[in-house]
Design a protein around this nucleic acid. Structure first.
Lengths: 234, 234
DNA sequence: CATTATAATATGTAGCTACATAATATTGTC
DNA sequence: GACAATATTATGTAGCTACATATTATAATG
C-alpha cells in the first residue's frame, strides 16, 4: 500500500499498533516488542516507531519505561483534552456581547478550605474577589476567587472593577502548576441571588488552583449559569 | 548552565519560548521566528526546536502551519487532559468494592434527541440499556445508554446482567471518534428513585457518543452520585 | 481584474548515528 | 542469603540530511 511513497509513516505504525491493542493481539498489561524489533517487522526506522509510541503513550494507550519496555495500559481510560477558555472569549466566540461586573474585593484571612486547596499551612491575608461575567447582559459565570497577595502583591494596585482578576492574572502572573476540578453544585441562596436564579438549580462548577513554583497564586471557583456544558472531541 | 552537558534540550527550548510568551515578548497572535532561526539563536538543531514547538502546539500555546509559520495562540486557553476511567476501575482504585446492576435492556426506536447526538437521519431499532454501577453496594454511577444494533449486532447476544455494556463495548467494539460533554443536571424523579436520592440534587453528568468510522455505535449519559468530581493536573 | 499556474518557503516526516538515562539483571562480597 | 557494585538493555534525546507537504506569494494568462 502507499503506492507512490513506499515509506511507512509513523501514523501507519500508530494505527497498526493501536489495532493490535484493540483486537487483543496485545492485551491489557502485555509487554510489546522493543521498538527496534517492531521497526524491523514493519520495515521502518526505530525513530518512526518511537514517534508512534510516544503518541500512543500520550493518548494513554501504552506505558513506556526505559529499560522496562512498552506495555499496554492495564486499565483502559478515555483520555480527553479540554480547552477551558477565558470567559470573555467564550462569550464572544458564541456571538454574545461580553460584560463584566465586580461584586466585591476585600482583604481577608485565608479560610481553612482555601488554605487546604492551596497547600498552605498557616492563614495569610488574601484578596477575596467576587465577580460576575455576563453574556448579553445576563449572568454567564460567577467567579469566587482568593488571591495570595504575598505571591502577587501587585494585584492590590489593580482596579478590579475594570479588568477581571482572571484576565489580569493570566497576563501578569504565569503559573507553573494548575489543579483543576469539575463538579456539579446546587445553587445556594447567595449564588442564586447573584446570578438571578430561583435557587436549587444544578450548576456546573470548575475549580482551579494555581501555583508559581511552590508559591500559591490563586484558587477560583467558577460557577456557570444553568445549561452550560463543556465539550471535547477525540 | 548544564555544566556537564552543554547540549540544549528540547525542554530548555520549550521553557525559553514559553517564558517569552508569558512575559509578552511574543504576544498573543504574534508570529514567531522560523524554527531554523530560533535554533541558531539558541544554539541547537532545528529538530530540537521542532520537538519543543510540537509540544507547545499540543499544549495550545502556539499554532503552527506549514509555510505559515508559528504564532502565539491569540486566545489563551487552559488546556486540561482528563482520564475518564471505567467505573469498575474508578471504584476499585478508590479502594471500594465494585458492583453492577442491570436495570433494563430493551429494543426501542431511536428517540429524536438520541438520533441527533449520533448524527442519525432516520430512527432505527436500538438497544436501550439502563444500569447502575455501585461502590460498596451504594449507587455510584447511573448509565442510560443507547446502542445501535445495526452497527453492533453482537450486543444482542450478550448477557448484560453480567457484563456492563460499557465494558463489553470497550473490549469488543473500538471506536474511532468520540464526542464528550460535561454538564450538571438536577436529579429528576426517575434518577432519584434509581440512585436512592431525594430528588433535586445537583449531579455531575458525562455524555459520550462514539462512532466507528461513520457508523454510530452508542451514546451514553453517565450520571454520577452527588459529590463526585473529576480532577486534572497540568 | 479576476483567475489560474508557478515558485518560494516554513513546517512535517523519515532515516541515520551516537550517546544519555533509567531501570533491571547480574555478579561479587560479606 | 542479603546487600552492594556493576553490567546490560530499552527507551529518550540531540544532531544531521534529505525530501514531502501545505500554503502563501508571485507571475502568467484570459
Amino acid at each position: 500500500m502507499a503506492a507512490r511513497q513506499d515509506r511507512r509513516s509513523w501514523r501507519d505504525v500508530l494505527e497498526e499498533i493501536r489495532n493490535r491493542v484493540l483486537t487483543g493481539r496485545y492485551g491489557p498489561g502485555d509487554k510489546l516488542p522493543r521498538d527496534e524489533d517492531i521497526a524491523a517487522e514493519l520495515g521502518c526506522a526505530r525513530s518512526t516507531v518511537q514517534r508512534a509510541m510516544r503518541d500512543l503513550a500520550d493518548r494513554g494507550v501504552v506505558e513506556r519505561r526505559r529499560k522496562g519496555g512498552t506495555r499496554v495500559r492495564p486499565d483502559p481510560v478515555t483520555r480527553a483534552v479540554f480547552d477551558i477558555p477565558v470567559a470573555r472569549n467564550e462569550v464572544e466566540s458564541r456571538g454574545g456581547s461580553y460584560g463584566y461586573q465586580l461584586i466585591r474585593a476585600a482583604i481577608e484571612e485565608t479560610p481553612p478550605p482555601v488554605a487546604a486547596a492551596l497547600d498552605m499551612r498557616a492563614p495569610l491575608p488574601m484578596l477575596h474577589v467576587e465577580a460576575l461575567h455576563l453574556m448579553n447582559s445576563r449572568p454567564f459565570l460567577y467567579e469566587d476567587r482568593w488571591v495570595l497577595t504575598r505571591t502577587v502583591p501587585e494585584i492590590e494596585t489593580v482596579d478590579l472593577g475594570v479588568v477581571s482578576a482572571n484576565e489580569w492574572l493570566l497576563a501578569n502572573k504565569p503559573y507553573s502548576r494548575c489543579d483543576l476540578r469539575f463538579s456539579a453544585e446546587t445553587a445556594g441562596d447567595r449564588v442564586a441571588a447573584i446570578m438571578g436564579l430561583e435557587g436549587g438549580e444544578a450548576l456546573f462548577v470548575i475549580e482551579r488552583t494555581t501555583w508559581s513554583g511552590d508559591d500559591p497564586i490563586t484558587t477560583v471557583k467558577a460557577v456557570y449559569a444553568p445549561g452550560y456544558h463543556l465539550r471535547a472531541e477525540i
